[in-house]
């Protein structure tokens, strides 16, 4: 008998997870808050960006005006490369990176534990490899987060084009680039969330554990900056934003490798542990 491809299993579980996310009250509410919040904030930011551009002294372009700030934040090479970006889009990128873990923990905390608690998972384990179930759940969680953040980003792009003074093509190019930066980083956060969340049978415990794990990773980042162990920062997904924003392809590749490794290792560990446990 021909074995069913794990990819088909993963696709089926992922599609169902997406449907589940956006049908739940929680998913709809978080989506609305993220999108409406993004729209409101972007209005303000686009207006600030416009005022900033209009008040530039003659002979100074926006790139020159913003360069010192971005250079201080990301180093000279990357700072220069993104100095011309619309301020509103960069702010939304930073907000997405900072609020992403919160969105991910709230959106995904019950993705596995909720079905384990109510034993609904038993309908799946008879028909799906457990590793496919976890991978499908992780992908579904990631796509749900991407859908919400993309929705927010699209609104921000629209507002920036409408209110600001930046040409639409530039807004879309910078917007797409910044959104692309958030994709691998949110994949890494989702991997951590699925690994930690799947260890618990109670969604509330799962939420607390995910929050603790995310905070723990942030503390590692802080410790890395203050200690002789800078390599600890590699465990913190948001650390990779500066690598992913770099104009140098090899640095971007390193960022992709780092975030991909976190996502793969955590999801793989989650799948392995789930395969061994009783449901």
């Amino acid at each position: 008998m021909r074995a069913m491809s794990p990819l088909v299993e993963i696709r089926l579980v992922t599609v169902r997870e997406l449907r589940r996310s956006f049908r739940s009250f929680k998913g709809v509410l978080l989506g609305i808050i993220a999108i409406a919040g993004g729209a409101g904030v972007s209005m303000l930011l686009a207006w600030i960006d416009r005022a900033k551009r209009e008040s530039l002294p003659p002979g100074i372009d926006i790139e020159a005006a913003q360069e010192p700030f971005f250079t201080a934040s990301y180093g000279e090479e990357t700072g220069k490369a993104i100095a011309a970006c619309p301020y509103a889009l960069w702010t939304i990128l930073v907000a997405t990176l900072w609020l992403g873990p919160l969105l991910i923990s709230l959106l995904d905390y019950d993705t596995v534990s909720g079905e384990v608690q109510h034993r609904s998972v038993r309908f799946w384990t008879v028909r799906t490899r457990r590793s496919s179930y976890i991978l499908g759940k992780a992908l579904g969680a990631w796509f749900s987060v991407l859908a919400v953040t993309l929705g927010m980003n699209v609104i921000v792009w629209g507002v920036t084009i409408g209110v600001g003074k930046v040409p639409p093509a530039q807004v879309l190019a910078w917007g797409a680039r910044f959104f692309a930066v958030t994709m691998p980083i949110s994949a890494a956060w989702c991997g951590v969330a699925v690994l930690v969340g799947s260890l618990f049978r109670t969604p509330m415990l799962s939420l607390l554990a995910i929050s603790a794990a995310f905070s723990g990773l942030w503390i590692l980042r802080v410790v890395a900056g203050l200690s002789d162990w800078p390599w600890l920062a590699y465990a913190y997904p948001n650390f990779y934003d500066s690598l992913l924003l770099s104009p140098r392809p090899s640095t971007v590749a390193l960022g992709l490798l780092g975030t991909g490794a976190i996502a793969a290792l955590t999801t793989g560990a989650g799948a392995s542990l789930f395969r061994m446990r009783d449901v």
């Binding site: 169902r16 449907r19 589940r20 049908r23 739940s24 079905e115 109510h118 034993r119 609904s120 038993r122 309908f123």
Partner: peptide, 8 residues
């Protein structure tokens, strides 16, 4: 006692 997925 396994609950059916409520949203489906």
């Amino acid at each position: 006692d396994a609950l059916l997925p409520a949203q489906d």
